[in-house]
Amino acid sequence: MKNLAVSSKSIPVILHPLLNIWQSDDNDNQTNHNISLDHRIGDGKIKYTRLQYGLQVINFDILLSQDIEISIDPIAEDSLQFLYCLNGKCSHIFKNPEEVSFIDQFQTVVVRSHKESNSSIIIKKGLHVVFNLICVNVNEYFNEFKTKENHFGKKFQIFLQCISKKPKYIHLGSYNFKIAEQLKLIVNAEYNNEISKLLSLKGRYYLVLAKHIEQFYADIENNSNTSGLLKDELKRISKVSEFIKKHPEIQHSIQTLCAASGLSPAKLQEGFRFMFDRTVSDYVRNIRLEKAEKLIQTTDLTISEIVYSVGLTSRSYFCKIFKKKYRFSPKEYKSKTTNT
């Protein structure tokens, strides 16, 4: 079902395996591609971003009407893929001999392969899958860290040694909800211009990559989930955090959040500290400030109107905590944003 209207010469080599499901592309450069799925295959979008030489990202947000297999054989001789399922699930396969690994939602996965490894992702029909793939050319991206003698360089050397033992390597890691939070910010972000979009995307993707590597170390040191919470409990924490983001104006309390999640106050607090490095109240306050900053930038609401729209009642308190976070009073921030 190859779409012959798409020229393989106009797209990065890493995207060539997607030509069979490609409907259209609203970008004509080598740095960004927003791909619409062929409607005979399913619905959804695939977004490609080249962050720098040796570092590329593909995001899938698709719902399929038939099973598909997407080759992730790299364009480089030695490549790493960092895989993460934000929604749904999928599987990875090495062929010859066949080795299938199932990837669950929120699970971290590291794959090392080369051109002839026949490495693929399998996504099943009827399941809404939001999937992130970071592809790293080891020689191009990690080369500068290989010879560094500082603590950071040595950790990278250990990391590369662990994954270089076999020509084909897959590490099925633990569940990491901090990566999910970063990817959600990428998916839901709104940008004022292309420059701010590019800088924000790069920063968050680098952070996602760093968290993948941190999780790998935690796994091999058997220290992956120090919270003691179960996967289902961490999922409930994630749902609570999403509810707070959508409704910052509600007067959230430990009691109401516990009732909604079915978690005890101790587990709720423990989960927020583990996932966000904040208490529940700190998290709610930070979400309100972020929403307020966005309203200051994008609306003509007065400061008092913004205060009440994010669930606060004291303008003086709001001004105090806003200035502490953003280094300007709300009025100064609004003036600065307007004049920029």
Results as ranks from 00 to 15, higher is better:
residue 247 H to N: 14
residue 103 I to S: 00
residue 312 L to Y: 06
residue 239 K to N: 12
residue 128 H to G: 07
residue 48 Y to W: 03
residue 71 S to R: 05
residue 175 Y to E: 04
residue 215 Q to I: 03
residue 119 S to E: 04
residue 152 F to C: 12
residue 211 K to W: 04
residue 169 Y to D: 00
residue 74 P to T: 06
residue 125 K to D: 11
residue 151 H to L: 15
residue 45 K to N: 13
residue 147 T to N: 15
residue 211 K to A: 02
residue 274 F to P: 00
residue 221 E to V: 09
residue 95 K to D: 10
residue 79 S to E: 04
residue 291 K to P: 00
residue 95 K to M: 10
residue 182 Q to G: 04
residue 246 K to H: 15
residue 125 K to H: 14
residue 2 K to R: 11
residue 17 P to F: 03
residue 308 Y to W: 13
residue 116 E to W: 10
residue 187 V to S: 09
residue 179 I to R: 02
residue 244 I to C: 01
residue 335 S to C: 05
residue 306 I to Q: 03
residue 132 N to Y: 01
residue 156 F to Q: 04
residue 166 K to D: 14
residue 128 H to E: 08
residue 11 I to F: 07
residue 155 K to G: 14
residue 157 Q to A: 10
residue 288 R to A: 02
residue 289 L to N: 03
residue 64 L to R: 08
residue 127 L to C: 09
residue 319 C to N: 12
residue 112 R to A: 02
residue 42 G to T: 05
residue 88 G to N: 03
residue 247 H to T: 08
residue 92 H to A: 10
residue 184 K to M: 14
residue 42 G to I: 00
residue 171 H to L: 05
residue 265 P to M: 09
residue 206 Y to F: 15
residue 217 Y to L: 06
residue 9 K to G: 09
residue 102 F to P: 00
residue 98 E to N: 13
residue 155 K to Y: 14
residue 3 N to A: 07
residue 54 G to Q: 10
residue 105 Q to K: 02
residue 110 V to D: 01
residue 170 I to E: 00
residue 175 Y to W: 00
residue 208 V to F: 03
residue 166 K to G: 02
residue 114 H to S: 07
residue 246 K to C: 11
residue 31 T to E: 14
residue 22 W to Y: 15
residue 96 N to R: 12
residue 206 Y to K: 13
residue 96 N to Q: 12
residue 339 N to W: 09
residue 120 S to N: 05
residue 207 L to H: 09
residue 281 S to G: 05
residue 26 D to W: 06
residue 140 E to F: 12
residue 56 Q to G: 07
residue 159 F to M: 04
residue 63 L to G: 05
residue 226 T to V: 15
residue 265 P to Q: 11
residue 254 I to Y: 10
residue 307 V to Y: 00
residue 110 V to M: 00
residue 143 N to P: 09
residue 304 S to L: 13
residue 225 N to Q: 07
residue 218 A to S: 08
residue 327 R to A: 14
residue 228 G to W: 13
residue 196 S to T: 15
residue 263 L to R: 06
residue 94 F to W: 09
